[in-house]
């Protein structure tokens, strides 16, 4: 995998890869917002585990 385009990536980071090139590092805080958004709408009351998995 070629890391030329994500010089900020470090050990343990997740990156998004396309045709052999990493294009973006995954932001772990933003990654949870799909669940926090639902929770704020009151549609994920019993689904707290979605946030921590």
């Amino acid at each position: 995998m070629n890391l030329s385009y994500v010089p900020e990536a470090g050990l343990g980071d997740f990156v998004l890869v396309h045709v052999g090139f990493a294009l973006s590092t995954v932001d772990e805080v933003e990654a949870r917002q799909v669940f926090t958004y639902l929770k704020q709408m009151g549609e994920l009351a019993e689904l707290g585990e979605g946030e921590t998995r």
Partner: peptide
């Protein structure tokens, strides 16, 4: 996650 999908 199917439950979250149902929520949306």
């Amino acid at each position: 996650d199917p439950d979250a999908a149902a929520g949306y």
